Amino acid sequence: MTIGDGTHAVRAGLPEPETYRPTLPGPVFAAHYHLHGDADLATGPYTYGRDANPTWSLLERAISELESPEAPAETVVFASGMGAISAVLLSQLRQGDTVVLPSDGYNLLVPLRERLEGYGIEVRTAPTAGDAQLTVLDGARLLWIESPSNPGLDVCDIRRLAEAAHAQGALVAVDNTLATPLGQRPLDLGADFAVASGTKALTGHGDVLLGYATTRIPALAASVRAWRKTVGAIPGPMEAWLAHRSLATLQLRVDRQASNALALAEALSERPEISGLRHPGLPGDPAHPVAAAQMRGGRFGCVVSFTLPDRAYAQRFLDALRLVDDATSFGGVRSTAERRARWGGDAVPEGFIRFSVGAEDPEDLIADVHRALDAAREA
């Protein structure tokens, strides 16, 4: 039976109904499990708390169903998005290998790049826009894509890049954090891994740290799972259960936030003090043609970025907001915004704002932003 995205999200990963049992079983807190002799070690799914947990298993099945509803896939969940990113890169790369990273990706890719280079791995970088990573693919072992990119919101043609990488034997991993599985399915576009921070829109309430990597290739899943076991980057059962519970509202949140983000971007386009406005859903955005072709259901993400005249102007704007929290991260049901340059890891102007649009009534949110911009200008 063919079902829609909302139904998928509501039903993903649930066990078969059992009389007198909850629809979604509660978290299993266990460091070890009963084992009866050596045979249980080889046949049982749960032997030790660092290896597996029934609560993780349900969440992993749910994410696999969302990232790859048409083909079998395996998901490995982690304690954070960076745990998942590091596991994919460090489990697949060896001394002498070459990896291609986006030069405009998540800012923790910078220290991770330094770590990789310290291990004798060559790191090449190129921007996301214009499929520029194609120019540095020669001889690479792995291509890492971030589309839409964070925080600049550029988009690349994932299928084109994946085909080029595979033609020369390279693996392809796509950071799908901003899009979510409902907005984009990298595995359908040819990627070997879909990787994401579940901290953001996947869970959507700003109260869970989580990451995951999904692949359709069992050997790749096994290598990432072995890495998780070795370094111990495991999620807590409570976090895994909260994440699974949150999936039921994923479509509701993603759709509301995407429509709110587009409405805010359209409103901001009329403000003269704003420059560099970006949102992939805007028809005039440079990323829109490719985003419209590969992102699903008009879901272009919850993030809008723009630049105000200077650092002080940007801070006055943030201070004047009443319905928006000055906080990092994105994807939550409550809108947040920040002056991204304060972290020092992104090549953005001092007045650059990354705005994560929540699920508030759009009229209220837009009115608050207009009022804050007026206050910042008049100060």
Rank of each mutant, 00 (worst) to 15 (best):
182 L>E: 04
294 Q>H: 07
287 A>H: 04
187 L>A: 06
258 A>D: 11
190 G>D: 05
246 S>T: 10
236 G>C: 10
284 G>A: 09
319 D>H: 14
202 L>T: 09
184 Q>P: 03
250 L>D: 02
303 V>H: 06
305 S>P: 13
217 I>F: 07
180 T>W: 02
285 D>F: 05
247 L>V: 00
229 K>D: 09
319 D>N: 14
276 G>L: 04
312 A>S: 13
248 A>R: 15
308 L>C: 07
179 A>S: 13
261 A>T: 04
262 L>F: 12
256 R>V: 09
262 L>E: 05
213 A>F: 00
266 E>P: 01
269 S>N: 13
259 S>D: 12
183 G>I: 00
235 P>K: 10
320 A>T: 08
233 A>S: 15
224 V>R: 02
263 A>G: 06
317 F>N: 11
231 V>W: 03
202 L>D: 09
319 D>T: 13
177 T>F: 03
270 E>Y: 13
195 V>Y: 06
317 F>M: 12
249 T>F: 04
252 L>Y: 05
208 V>A: 03
316 R>Y: 03
320 A>G: 06
264 L>K: 08
181 P>C: 01
294 Q>I: 08
297 G>H: 14
229 K>S: 13
247 L>A: 01
270 E>V: 14
269 S>L: 10
311 R>G: 12
294 Q>Y: 04
197 S>P: 10
242 L>H: 11
294 Q>L: 11
190 G>V: 07
285 D>P: 00
258 A>P: 09
312 A>W: 00
222 A>M: 08
273 E>R: 06
238 M>Q: 12
284 G>P: 02
193 F>D: 01
234 I>A: 07
179 A>R: 13
240 A>I: 05
236 G>S: 10
193 F>A: 03
253 R>K: 08
243 A>L: 08
191 A>Q: 10
209 L>R: 15
204 G>P: 02
226 A>Y: 02
230 T>C: 15
318 L>W: 00
267 A>K: 05
